[in-house]
Design a protein around this nucleic acid. Sequence first.
DNA 1: AAACGAAATGTTAGCGATAAAGATCAGGGA
DNA 2: TCCCTGATCTTTATCGCTAACATTTCGTTT
Lengths: 333, 333
Amino acid sequence: MADIAKAVGVSPMTVSRAFRRDTSVGEVTRKKILQIAEEMGYVFDSTASNLRSQRTGFVAITIPSLNNSNFADTVRGLNEVLQAAGLQVLLGYTNYDVDEEERLIEQLLRRRPEAMVVTGGRHTDRARRLLKSAGIPVVETWDIPKSPVGYTVGFSNADAMRRMVEHLQSAGAQRLAFIGGDDKGDTRGADRRRGFVEAAERLRLEYQLVSLGSPPISMREGARAMVDVLDARQPVDAVVCVSDLAAFGALTECQRRGVSVPDEVMIAGFGAYDIAEVALPGLTTMDAHSMAIGSRTGELLVALLRGGTDFATAKKVSHIEPTLRISGSTVSR
Amino acid sequence: MADIAKAVGVSPMTVSRAFRRDTSVGEVTRKKILQIAEEMGYVFDSTASNLRSQRTGFVAITIPSLNNSNFADTVRGLNEVLQAAGLQVLLGYTNYDVDEEERLIEQLLRRRPEAMVVTGGRHTDRARRLLKSAGIPVVETWDIPKSPVGYTVGFSNADAMRRMVEHLQSAGAQRLAFIGGDDKGDTRGADRRRGFVEAAERLRLEYQLVSLGSPPISMREGARAMVDVLDARQPVDAVVCVSDLAAFGALTECQRRGVSVPDEVMIAGFGAYDIAEVALPGLTTMDAHSMAIGSRTGELLVALLRGGTDFATAKKVSHIEPTLRISGSTVSR
DNA sequence: AAACGAAATGTTAGCGATAAAGATCAGGGA
DNA sequence: TCCCTGATCTTTATCGCTAACATTTCGTTT
């Protein structure tokens, strides 16, 4: 900057201002500065800027996994909004592990993000302490925690699953099965299972639970789990899967065996993945509005960080109600 | 740090050292420092560290899209290796647009990453200039550019597609169709199309091209495109899709119409997505080893940045040969 | 006991930007 | 003419850490 200042004949401060949109620099001077800077191959150094101004423009987010999951959509929604506001997303993968999450949160906080977004409402005590004392907005997503750390953008996984079970009952199912991964770490999966069990018991439906593979369970595990379900003694009217990917795997296993869906077995998924719409038959699913969770979170943060909204004023809980999408896998057409 | 130093009775420098693994601090002193720091709720400030040490620990990567694409796997492979080496990935989405890429590269370089990974080998002139003069290792992935900026980890999309066409011919196909998105921006898609055309002409096969939707084209577009192909006058023996997702869409459209795959029409995809393996019939696909591209890139960068490998010594081009995976969608079983 | 080298710790200065406050200047009104 | 106002630009002093070099400590060796 000093070199540019010398070349243009102004002070470094003016060069600094020229690189930021808002501040007062003469239009002629700014043009000249930017042009000379480009010629000299100068690239602005955010590192120094961040230190002095105590603003990094980072928003950190921890997610369990990017692959085969709705979280990619959430990140996309978040990123679109934040990028437009000049904020950079810092991503960390917890791999469905709360200890890994704690480590990650600590790492990310060292970068001095201006806000922190986490997936789910279960964290280690130390992670909660770190988040609380960071002095920045914290958003928990994809869940409605009992005692939230800060803001919340999400929905109740258990309630959503209850609604799904009610749908299956009204479609005529009496004997259900739930296909999910090991609960270890996947609290959202565990909540869905809990909602499933509660609803099944309340409605006096028979049910069984099948768990295999560590999350995120994918198409392959869904197919393998369906083998167990179909081979078991007790027959089943409907299987509910923790995600559409598992549901699709289950569907293909039925097709492989010539088991008709939905006439012999209904199949329901979760997440409104593309596959739910394109599969034959279409998969009944619960649309959690993954991308909306991200964009809503982004809008909240932009309002707090750049819009001048008071931390105390902003609504603490943003409920995003999932939408049940009924399709051919649970209803004959 | 000064506060901690005072509390422990050492100099700030010693505290600074205690927070970095390698440097020489007495084991007793280090333990004490870390404990007091934790009690005081101190969180290390990377921002200042980065400025002074001129090392940020960032590796920036630009990818076209995270959703419905193999790039998520590449990012995962890259992240796993880099995270283990203490490096943080900075992600940017170009949305299949070279101008957006240029803007993004400039933004990311301001953060002073220690290396830069980009997808593909086509960039604006200014982007190339920025990358070249950044003075950091640059890796182009998912392509083998004619005139690379720095390092390369990838394969020839055109060659891969040629091999696919050869496979289809040997499987008995004479009349082909290619389904892809608009070329605008998706150079890898365009390269695949080019390879398809070249191979078809060389082998004297009839062919047609169907393009619709902006990349990344997904299952829905694949199904829509298949409508066009099946409705057209001239019959087709095999369709090649720019990705497995489109191929799966095409497959469902065939099933919806009762067109037998592969007996009436063969279908081939690209990318070895999970769906290719689970679909019925399985989709013949080209496994580009998406994740390996990421991890190989990560290993290269760790060697360069932390392993002391000389920039000049390292191999410039890392070829990752795609693997043809033949399945039921092109070969009767 | 003196000399020595390695390990542990301290001192000084500065990374490259910007917050905050002050200086300069053109144009307009009294 | 003089004062005032707002726009534009400058000066000074850090932000929180660490490179580079200086110094102390302490176990060994002669």
